[in-house]
Design a protein around this nucleic acid. Structure first.
Lengths: 125, 125
DNA sequence: CTTGACCTTGGAGCGTAGTCCAGTGTTTAG
DNA sequence: CTAAACACTGGACTACGCTCCAAGGTCAAG
C-alpha cells in the first residue's frame, strides 16, 4: 500500500505519516522507485496509535511500545507481560479520572466552585 | 501570598506561574510594589489545573472552564450544569480508556501483537 | 549602606506534534 | 506525448507548554 492509500484509510495526512516514519512510529519498505510501501496491518497500527495518543501517550512512548512488541521474543508470555504493563498505565489513568470525577460530583449541588484565583475586594494600594 | 510561596506550596515553578498568568490560568492582584499577590485558594486551583492537565485538557480549556465558573451567575444550578458537563467529558475519556484496556486484555495470552508495520519478507525489486 | 533573597519584565530557546511549501521525479490516462 | 495525479526530499513554520536567562527593582537583616 502506498502512502496515499494509507492516508485515506486511516484519516491521517501523508505528511503526518512521513513524520511518523521519521520518528520511528511506522516503518515501510520502499519500492524500487523510492515510494513507500506499507503492510496492510499498518492501518490497524495507526488506529491504535491514534487511540493511545488521545489517551496521553507521547509518540515516543507509543513507538517504544511498538518496538518492544517487535523485539520481544515472540512467546505469548513476553507479550502478555507487555500488555499487562500497559493495562496498568491505563488503569492508573482511569483512577486519576475517577478522582477528578469525584471531585466534580462532590461540588455539583454545592455553591462552591473550584475557586479560580484573584478576587478583587481588597485593593493593593 | 507572593509567587515564591505559591510556587513552593504547589510544586510549580515561578516561571510556570507567570506563564499561567499570561495565558489567563491564574490571576493575582498586585501589591503596591508590583509584586503579585495570590489568594490562598490559588493553591487548590493550581492542584486542580495539574490534575485536569494530566487528563488531557489543554491550558486553554482549563482557563475557559475557570472563567465560566467565575462568570456564571453564582447559582448552584448553573455551577452544577458546568460540573455535569465536565463529568461527561471525563466519562467519555474513561470510556476510551476502557476500550483501549479491552483491546489490550483481548491480546493478553494470544501471540498476536498489535502488529507494527514493516516486515521485510518480499523485497521491492 | 550593603548583601542577599526575593520580585519584576522581556525575550530567547526547547521539545512535541505536526503542517505546509518548493522543487523534483514517477506513473497512469487520454 | 502530455497532463494530472501521485510520490519524494528538505526545510521553514506553527501552536503548545514550558524553561532559562539578563537586567533591573524591592526589602529585611546585619
Amino acid at each position: 500500500m502506498r502512502i496515499g492509500e494509507l492516508a485515506a484509510r486511516t484519516g491521517t495526512s501523508r505528511d503526518t505519516i512521513r513524520f511518523y516514519e521519521r520518528v520511528g512510529l511506522v516503518e515501510g519498505r520502499r519500492l524500487s522507485n523510492g515510494y513507500r510501501d506499507f503492510a496492510p496491518e499498518t492501518v490497524e497500527w495507526l488506529a491504535y496509535v491514534r487511540t493511545a495518543q488521545t489517551l496521553g501517550f507521547t509518540l515516543a512512548e507509543i513507538a517504544r511500545h511498538g518496538e518492544e512488541l517487535r523485539e520481544a521474543p515472540d512467546s505469548a508470555d513476553a507479550l502478555s507481560a507487555l500488555f499487562e504493563q500497559k493495562i496498568q498505565i491505563v488503569d492508573a489513568r482511569m483512577a486519576e479520572l475517577a478522582t477528578l470525577r469525584a471531585e466534580l460530583t462532590d461540588r455539583v449541588g454545592t455553591g462552591c466552585p473550584l475557586r479560580a484565583a484573584g478576587r478583587r475586594d481588597a485593593p493593593a494600594s
